[in-house]
Every structure is written in C-alpha cells, then in structure tokens.
Amino acid sequence: MPKLALLRFIPFRRADILQMCLQEGQLDAESLVKFKNGARQIERHFRDDFHRAKHALKDAYFSLDPDADTRLVHLDNRDTASSQDDLARQVSELLERANYDKVTPEVLSKALDSASLFDIRLVVNLDDFAEVLLYTRGASEREEVIRGPFNLWRKTVRFVNYDRVVLYLRFKDEMNEDSSLAGCRPGATMLKLFQNVPDADMEMLFPNTQVGMRLRDKLMIGIPALVSGGVVLTTKLGATLVLTGSLLGFWLGWHNDEVTLDRKAIIVLLAGAGTIGAYLWKQISNFKNRKLRFNEALTRNLYFKLLDNNAGVLYRLLDDAEESECKESLLAYYFLLAAHQPLSAQELDQRIEVWFSQRWQCRLDFDVDDALQKLAKLNLAYIDADYWHISALSADVEG
C-alpha cells in the first residue's frame, strides 16, 4: 500500500477555527481588534466571491443538468460543447479550492481491477461515458476482517478509505441501445458525492455497475448442480433414459427391435421431461437468487454512502470551498498576528502545522503560499524581503 500524503483539508469548522485561535490568548488588545476585523473582512470577501461562483456554475450546468425542471431558452450562440468544457473547468477549480485531489486514470484503473471488500465481483465499462473524472478528499488507512462462508476462514484486509468522493460523468451524445445507460439523457452531465468509500470499491459508484459471478460463486452453484444432477439421472430418470436410448437406436438404425410408444412409455417420457425441466429451473433460480443478494448488498451499501446528486453536489462543494478558503486565511492571519514579528512563509507554515499536530492531534499539510496570497489580495498582509508583515491599515477595517 503506498504511503498516504498528509491532509490538505482542515477537518474543523470555520467557526471552530475562529474560537480555537481566540482561546490561545496570544493576542494583545490591538492585535485582537485587528484579528476580529480581519476575520469579518475575510468572511465577507469569500461570501461575495462564492456567490458569484455559484451563479456562474448554475449557468454552466443548467443545459447539462439531467434533473432540471425549467425550460431551456437559447438566447446566445453558446453550444453544448462549450458549456461542457466551461463546466468541467469550473468544477475542477472549485474542487481544488475545496481541497479535493484528482484521481489519475492509472489509479482509477488499478482501483477498478482490485477485489471488492464486499466479496462480490463488480464490472464497469468506462467506454459508456464520454468523460469520467474522480476526486477524493481525506484519505486514511484502515483494516477490515473479511469472513468466508459459514465463518470457515477470516482474512484481514488493509485498504485506503476516502472520506469524500466526487464523481463527474458526462454521457455520450449517442447512447448505445444495448447499454445499461440507455435510459439516460444523451450529452447530460452527472455529479455524485459519496462518503466513506474504500479504494477497492470505486466500481460501485458508477451507474452502469454490473454484478458478476466469481469463480468461487460458479463453483458453489456448479458443484452441487453436478452432484444433484447425477443423483437425478441415476434415481429418477433411469427408465426415461433407457426408453429414450431405445427409441434413438431404432430410429437411427442401430438395432431392429421396434419400440412401442404406448401410454406407459409416453408417461415415462413426460415424467422424465418434467423432472429435467424442474431441475434446470431450480439451478437457474439459484443463480438468479445469488445475483439478487449481491445486488441487494450493493444497493444497501450505496444507500448509506450517497450524500448528494447533480446540482446539489455543486452547492455542497461551493460551501466546502468557501469554508476551506476562510479557514486557511484566518489561520495565516492569526499566526502572523500572534508572532508579533514578521515571518517567512516557511516559518509560518511550520508554526501552523506544529500547532495542529501538538494542540489538536491533527497532522496536515497547510497550503501556506495560497493562504498568504489571499491575505495579500485582501490587503491584510504584505511581503518585504521574503518576510510577511501585517498591514498597518488592517486594524481600521470595520464590518
């Protein structure tokens, strides 16, 4: 299992970050006023910024939303392809601001090829889609004990678990009638948000997931079928097989002994045919019932993992991204104020990460450069000779 990177996502609410900083008691009266005013300015800025981003995303997604219940009015020359490209770009930028990581095609392919933790075989055909993008946040290593049939054996499996997974799917403009997605709207874009997803179970997130039979499942059905089939042949179909063999031998000219199809013979043939039909139907039912249990396990699992769909995913991501931007800015601003002296970006980054590790038992990779750039944009801090200073005017900001 590859070594996991440190979290970029700060797993605390914005309101809690604000209180956590204030409770440290490292600010004098003047710095405290600056921090409270700066916090209001930061929150106001990102509230307005993401309000604009929300409307831009709504405009880009409207014509592609499979759940839209309002009419599409063509008032400009914008085509579907440009809307798709614009949406993909905006969603990618939004996910980056919300501290999500993009899953590379190589990692996705490896995840789809790995064995499912639910002990079932899942198959996904990515060729059904025009575009597939997957993003994750909050990776952690976990262990789970998998039990065999009748608890005959146990196996401990280690895997990577993702706190959040976003799936971005764009359907082809022309859907194959034989595809399981034939009922979906061609050219539409689907967004899904999930929680607590093992890397080995990425297949279950796709709408065209098919449940297949593993070799073990086929053996569990096939071996009993062969055994019971032999019993049926020797105990219940003996007379039917003898009569059928005699008839075939006479019709094919292998012997000259004529076989009379009287009432008794016909009853024997019909009884044999009924026995064979009942046996085959039982084996088919066993196969269907086992597959149904697999589908039930898949549905039950997705019920607890699915958080939101389509436009609802965008609204959640907008809120997550706004929270993340505010938290990073608040932390950088507080620790610059608490230092009571200019700090380099590296010094500030180390102070914040050590504070989280020692004070809150949380190891993360703080994006200090992005946070400082946001403070500079808001005129709350500036850089001079590689050291960051608090702007003198920040104390005068009122909100």
Rank of each mutant, 00 (worst) to 15 (best):
V268R: 07
P186R: 02
T275F: 05
G238I: 06
S228G: 10
G238Q: 09
L243F: 00
L181P: 08
L252S: 14
R300P: 03
G229F: 06
R216M: 14
D173A: 06
V211Y: 09
H255K: 07
I221H: 08
L181I: 00
V166K: 01
V242F: 14
N295K: 12
V160H: 04
L233W: 04
Q195T: 12
Y168G: 09
R290N: 07
R170Y: 08
I267H: 05
A225D: 02
R263N: 04
T235E: 00
Q210P: 09
G245A: 00
V227T: 13
A297C: 10
F287P: 14
W254S: 03
L191D: 01
N295R: 13
T244C: 13
T209P: 02
N196P: 14
P224L: 10
A225H: 10
W254A: 07
T189E: 01
N196Y: 14
I284S: 09
A278M: 10
T234D: 05
L302I: 10
A182Q: 05
T244Q: 13
M213T: 13
G222R: 00
L270A: 03
N301G: 06
G274I: 12
V165A: 07
V165K: 06
I276L: 11
L237D: 08
T189P: 06
G277H: 13
G253C: 06
V165M: 07
K288T: 14
R300D: 12
F250A: 11
K236A: 02
K172D: 02
G277N: 13
L243I: 01
L205I: 10
A273M: 05
T244M: 14
F171M: 01
T189H: 02
F304C: 08
R170N: 09
